[in-house]
Design a protein around this nucleic acid. Structure first.
Ligand SMILES: [Mn+2]
Ligand SMILES: [Mn+2]
Ligand SMILES: [Mn+2]
Ligand SMILES: [Mn+2]
Lengths: 218, 218
DNA sequence: TTTATTTTTTAGACTAATCTAAATTTATTT
DNA sequence: AAATAAATTTAGATTAGTCTAAAAAATAAA
């Protein structure tokens, strides 16, 4: 079996591979996991020995089929637990990520499947992220950020790209939760600050905030 | 915070301290945790540094208040998760121990309390073990084993002392589950093998099996 | 196309948890 | 009380994961 640490690396590599299509860079992994590039190199070697990644020095890493399967199953777990915590234990969406980071590693096929069934096979987690199905298929959103909308355009919020407590908490205060309709009513050319209409109220948010909100255009 | 390993040691020491009232011996801990006495000595020193146990060389260990509190909270967690797995996810009582061994270490006050509430504040786990309340109070059974009953005496099964899959599975086959009434109809003097009446059927079980069943005498 | 900068890897060291083998202390027998 | 056995501790190694500092390779700039 794989250690928690190995699993966290696989998950990080998987997530980073969704953006750039090239091999994932050592520094990017180090950044995401708050560790040092030298530690990443060490771990990559180990994962390569286990055939979970393919790797040539200085060229970055890619997950093998096996590595990708593991990464996706951990993400499946993570998101199912997040649904459980919010739906069944009444946690708020900004409280569940850290707990799910631990629960995701209790990785027994049977537990995952039972949990999925108990939750009635949810498709999305509390942050709008798609839950991989039991065969590992993931239904990604088409990635339109709120910041991609033009003036006067409307959208409905379907997800967030950033899971930090401070961000989610901030969104909630602005009533920018999943399912909310928004309309762009002004964009500052200088720094892309947006004024939007939320439940009838005008709200001003930074580009940093708007680019992490995923919307479905209306 | 404490590592999973440290928590497992604390739990082991707690459990062993329930029998003998003296300091818990190094070898007993090593046995229970399937590790070597020398490893135990090392860990004990670390726990002593953290003031979680009191310890003098060659004299065994005792938990401090702090150490005991941690041990009990882990056990509380363990048993709540077992209830969850059986009641909500439809696992059988012989399938949950290993999973709970992992879940118990995800030790957040809030998670435990929410889980307790979700489960409607259960008093006992699927094996009849008492669940410590949120202040750490534990309502232990008076420890009458089935093997303590005399011929012709009756009892109802309220718990098991041994949690192995093979034992629990065996009990289930014999219909010796929690709540079942039994009556002793014969005891072999030589080796204490018992013949008992279970749901109208006569069943023969070894002393090894009968001494691990906790009963309430009727 | 050299020079400078950035990225990545190596070398060597550290901590947590474990082990084997040897030494020491305690307990049990004679 | 001495000898033997059992329990416990120490000494020294090992593995996983991490780090800092230095070397090497790849990129970017001049
Ligand atoms: Mn999350
Ligand atoms: Mn999520
Ligand atoms: Mn258990
Ligand atoms: Mn139990």
């Amino acid at each position: 079996m794989n250690s928690f640490t190995e699993e966290n690396y696989l998950k990080a590599i998987y997530k980073l591979s969704l953006n750039g299509s090239q091999g994932v860079s050592t520094n990017a992994i180090a950044d995401l996991l708050n560790t040092k590039p030298s530690s990443v190199t060490d771990m990559i070697k180990k994962l390569a020995d286990k055939k979970l990644v393919s790797y040539q020095k200085y060229q970055g890493v890619d997950l093998t089929k096996k590595g990708k399967d593991i990464a996706i199953s951990i993400i499946r777990n993570h998101r199912l637990w997040e649904v459980f915590l919010v739906e069944k234990l009444n946690f708020k969406w900004d409280e569940v990520h850290e707990l799910a980071e631990e629960l995701e590693h209790i990785n027994t096929h049977k537990l995952t499947e039972r949990l999925d069934e108990f939750l009635d096979f949810p498709k999305y987690d509390p942050h709008g992220d798609p839950i991989p199905d039991k065969d590992g298929k993931v239904a990604y959103h088409k990635d339109i950020a709120l910041s991609d909308l033009k003036n006067e355009e409307k959208g409905v919020i379907v997800g967030v790209k950033e899971h930090s407590k401070s961000y989610l908490n901030y969104l909630e205060q602005l009533q920018l939760v999943l399912g909310t309709e928004v309309k762009v009513i002004d964009i500052v050319a200088f720094d892309s600050t947006m004024k939007i209409l939320v439940n009838g109220k005008a709200v001003v948010i930074s580009h940093q905030a708007s680019k992490n909100l995923i919307v479905k255009s209306l």
